[in-house]
Design a protein around this nucleic acid. Structure first.
Lengths: 195, 195
DNA sequence: CCAATAAACGGACTTCACCCCGCTTAGTAT
DNA sequence: ATACTAAGCGGGGTGAAGTCCGTTTATTGG
């Protein structure tokens, strides 16, 4: 009763199939050519199925990105310092931001496609970055600031330049600014966290 | 030769008509019911005309928002302190953020509709906020940081919580967090700008 | 193994953003 | 005035997202 019944086996299989197929299509033809019809056709499934599984076009890319983020999260949570535990919280914050910038650059188009002006929170409430940053802020001993909101602001400051401000042009353009973004992130974090 | 020839009179008239009509429709039926067809019909113009004028659906809302922002910008540039000139730069930064939060809340749905996963930078390079924040940062005497990038980060930290993180649910939900956002913005700015 | 049932499936259908291109008209030069 | 031309206009056409509902199938309890 509490459990809303697990996903049926065929459904799970199809989800995997669709994800794999989508990844192929992205690699071969670029994000913009992954249409719901084409994806359904290539996976030899009905269009209805695709929508049932992912709800929306953006949903597919969101799922794809989630996959990729799992490995990244692993490194941040239990990898070697300064990204993983073992370094001080501020040092880890800096390292996290720099790693995240690299990650976003690497997955630029999928991340962009996962965005969508519609209902579900684009990089929503439960983002990896927000949670991780919140955790590290808790370890740095700042004054009695509103750490939850600060985490949201910092996440925006970190990812915004990509998702909001540099999204106009192509990845190459974003790549050109990567160095400055990383440096500036370090400055920002250190300014905020100095006692 | 340098001037690409001014907009024709009838074109300008139609632009105004469309803007006014769009505003009516937003007021009466909400943003999501403003379709290009409906707008064209109601303004008694062809659909092609609408696209010629605004390029894209988001373009309409962008234009609408620009209008509203003009008044806001006026206050920030030459209104009474602490928002306008006369107060110190840090004080003005704080005031700007708080005013901007109010503005965004007030224009929530249009701002959201002006966004769009496509080419033109959503809140792009030339945003009012970015430019204004950049200016004030220049007046605060910070160390030799990368002020341009810092301005981008701060803009994201200010507007991101709306456009990126709270966009999931309805305005009422965002309104509930407004106070915390304003307070947190103040903290953030003061942390960054303290010598 | 069999019946029952809730989930999954497929694909036609609807709705909309955006494109295209032949026709019309405002501005301008003679 | 008149003729010329570039800008503007209209609205049918296209492609893709998302919905609906009748049909099929995995799962579970007997």
């Amino acid at each position: 009763m509490g459990t809303p019944r697990a996903e049926r086996a065929d459904a799970a299989r199809n989800r995997q199939l669709l994800l794999a197929t989508a990844r192929e299509m992205v690699a071969e033809q670029g994000v913009e050519n992954v249409t719901m019809d084409a994806l359904a056709d290539r996976a030899a499934l009905g269009k209805g199925t695709v929508f049932r599984r992912f709800g929306t076009r953006a949903g597919i890319f969101h799922a794809l990105l989630d996959d990729d983020e799992r490995a990244f999260q692993e490194r941040a949570l239990s990898g070697p310092p300064p990204l993983g535990p073992g370094a001080g919280p501020v040092e880890r914050l800096v390292a996290y931001g720099q790693a995240r910038i690299g990650f976003l650059l690497e997955h630029y188009d999928i991340a962009r496609a996962a965005l969508d002006g519609s209902q579900p929170a684009p990089a929503g409430e439960g983002t990896i970055s927000r949670v991780h940053i919140r955790m590290l802020l808790g370890q740095a001993s700042l004054g009695a600031a509103d750490l939850d909101m600060l985490a949201v602001q910092l996440t925006a400051a970190l990812e915004g330049p990509f998702l909001l401000y540099l999204s106009a042009s192509d990845p190459a353009d974003a790549a050109r600014h990567t160095g400055r973004m990383a440096q500036s992130w370090q400055d920002l974090v250190q300014r905020i966290c100095r006692t």
